[in-house]
Design a protein around this nucleic acid. Sequence first.
DNA 1: ATTATTATTTAGATTTACCTAAATATTATT
DNA 2: AATAATATTTAGGTAAATCTAAATAATAAT
Lengths: 219, 219
Amino acid sequence: MNLSVSEENYIKSIYKLEEGQDSVTTNALAYELDTKPASVTDMAKKLKEKKLIAYEKYQGINLTPEGRKAALQIVRRHRLWECFLVEKLAFSWEEVHELAEELEHVRSEKLTNRLSEFLGNPAIDPHGDPIPDAQGKMGKPRTLTSLHKSQAKRLEVMAVSDKSAALLEFLTAKGIRLGTQLDVIERYAFDNSIEIKIRNQPAFTISEQVSKNIMVKAI
Amino acid sequence: MNLSVSEENYIKSIYKLEEGQDSVTTNALAYELDTKPASVTDMAKKLKEKKLIAYEKYQGINLTPEGRKAALQIVRRHRLWECFLVEKLAFSWEEVHELAEELEHVRSEKLTNRLSEFLGNPAIDPHGDPIPDAQGKMGKPRTLTSLHKSQAKRLEVMAVSDKSAALLEFLTAKGIRLGTQLDVIERYAFDNSIEIKIRNQPAFTISEQVSKNIMVKAI
DNA sequence: ATTATTATTTAGATTTACCTAAATATTATT
DNA sequence: AATAATATTTAGGTAAATCTAAATAATAAT
Ligand SMILES: [Mn+2]
Ligand SMILES: [Mn+2]
Ligand SMILES: [Mn+2]
Ligand SMILES: [Mn+2]
């Protein structure tokens, strides 16, 4: 199956939006891909033709097993390149997503597998997301909670769900990165902000928008 | 100046074909890019509009200074990725051109410069071609002769002008790679074939097509 | 059950990068 | 210089991936 860059971007976004939801909506996909619903409908017809998605008018979109397989390969390439950029070229985590968005479209199994090997077959990317192996298998389903929902008092940052430079730069400025351990001091019901504290540093407060995007596990 | 992948491929090919020649012909460019002359004419108009080439109907094509600057950046990226693939991912020299043909289109100065640094700022690529620096400067103009034309008896292989897997695989099979030193035993006028010998190995004969593409310097 | 709102699809264009076939220009050959 | 051969351009189309505006369907609110 030979996919265009555009088709690959659609497949990857569908894969991302499918998580949790039982099907992906035309509008949601348009928003995710920064395009218009009419364009999504056009592409949906094409991807259905190629048997990568299940799609019926007004019924939403789902990946077929083939589509999912394709998506996992793209995700694999994306995350491996992110690792490469961070670990080998000293990029910071907020810079790599954009670049990986392009590098992921170089389709060569040999390149992908050699790159993985070169990086020591990493299992997670710089944002804490798991990297599918050559067969498309990902370690564990990662049953992480967002800091926003977690009830625990002592936590470790395991991943970040929003990959925008804006959020990642903010987190870096506040000293929050993967593996950072923190204590929840207080939760304010009024605006759902949370006061947290990192080891010897003074406590500070983060908004709900931020805490929603920090994935943690209790320690 | 924001160039499409297609525009970049044209610019790079024009740069390549301009070497020696005083201008690039529509047909030559079509052949190089595996497309049709009519398509070249279309693109020529567009690139002229963008001031990357000088072009007048029936007069051939030349890069403007801007066009040349753009070309050198693309060539830089192409050759750096080739180095990466060979030196870090253990690809062989006949496999890397195709992959670099795609990787070269990821436009990020930061990425390019970090990659160069990571590789130790290499000056030549796996085919012996010089790598432009961040400013587009290339070491020396490389005044190499082809084995076909050279008069010397004892030579060192400095570069290969044809990057097809077919030639590169042949050379590898014969034990010829960059830096290989060889003696010319005999030149046969009939078909311009050349009998050569590599150190302790038995002599063998190569055709004119092959010797034309091996760039050497006398030692 | 209507009506309003929101979501989705269709119709019809546009842009980019190609193509083929035909026309025209340039260059080479008698 | 006239003709033949070759090179280049133009005219007119196609396919992919977008878009806007209008039509239709689904859902929510009265
Ligand atoms: Mn992408
Ligand atoms: Mn990531
Ligand atoms: Mn290319
Ligand atoms: Mn090369």
